[in-house]
Nucleic acid binder design. Sequence first.
DNA 1: AAATCGGGGCC
DNA 2: GGCCCAGATTT
Length: 369
Amino acid sequence: MQEKSLRIPKKDWIEGRRRLLEWFDVHQRPLPWRENPTPYATWLCEIIMQQTRIEQGLRYWYDFLTLWPDVDALAASSLDDVLKAWQGLGYYSRARNLHRAAQLIAHERDGQFPTSAKEWKNIPGVGPYTAAAIASICQGECVAAIDGNVLRVISRLLGVQEPIDRPAGRNQIETFSEEWLSEIKPGTHNEAVMELGATVCTPRAPQCPACPLSDICRSDQANTGLTPLIPTKAGKVKVQDVHLTFHVVTSGQNVWMRQRPENGVWGGLWEFPSHVEQDGKKHTTAPLPPKGMEEGDVSSHGAWGHSFEHILSHRRLTCRFWIWKTDMNFKPFEGRWLSWKDAKKLAIPRALDRFWLDLEKSQSTNMSS
DNA sequence: AAATCGGGGCC
DNA sequence: GGCCCAGATTT
């Protein structure tokens, strides 16, 4: 185990570490959360940035800090408001865990944040990476934070040929990372490795000539030419086809909506009642009325059979929307009546947002024509 | 150990 | 169309 992690002589990686920190001091991007890293702002940042590009998440980080400047404010908010602010960012369990964690910290920890990576891991939504990142960057703890950038940088540095999404490859990277970590400035070291991965040791077209570690790297193009081939991954996700039918049950300016269960796709978000076609079957031309709703309950139906494709990372959704008109005395199934205006204040999936835009466009076209 | 969970940007 | 992104949680 030790041999694997020490294929680079110690004097070399000590020197490499020094040059990395030197490089970081000069070339780091001016990211706003580096200016005044408080536990709250750093925690918020790390949760938002999980599996998210900086450019995409930045706006959300600002929005959350503006809406809820501290953990007490966040804890006092409603889950619906948090989900609404999170809308469009994806992985919605992060938002629900964030809200739950804020209440835990505010009410059960007297507003006190954890002070070690081990404690941080007990906070909902905080796993190994996030715990290490906050504790090292914000609280000076000597613990390695390993994200996608680090996996790529270290696998290339060591020339790890085993898949990094399997224990064999992952363990090599973890072992070396803990050893390599600067005991002087662990937070800066962690940020430096991530920054190198984000700006120089990139997934495609890495800029090895600009890398402060190129002379000791086991896969630099100038040495072995392995850089484009590392890291390797074993995991391959098969994308399934799913056909969804949404029933837009309306009455005048009101619409029937329900909240999705916490588990599963779009957990906790609001939607029009929907159902999945069995066994991935394609849509039939004539949709049945939603369950619990008889033909006689509707005054008209099938007004607009809008349909489009929506891609998730693990699903290919074909979404069909069917509009039914009824009256508000009718409460067909789980959910509630909402005015269009109030419904828009709720967090909804991107796919429904698309539908909504198309519908309004269609209505304005009809009115003008 | 493997599956699940979004959406957007890039090639 | 595939890949990846400042990963965590559930099964």
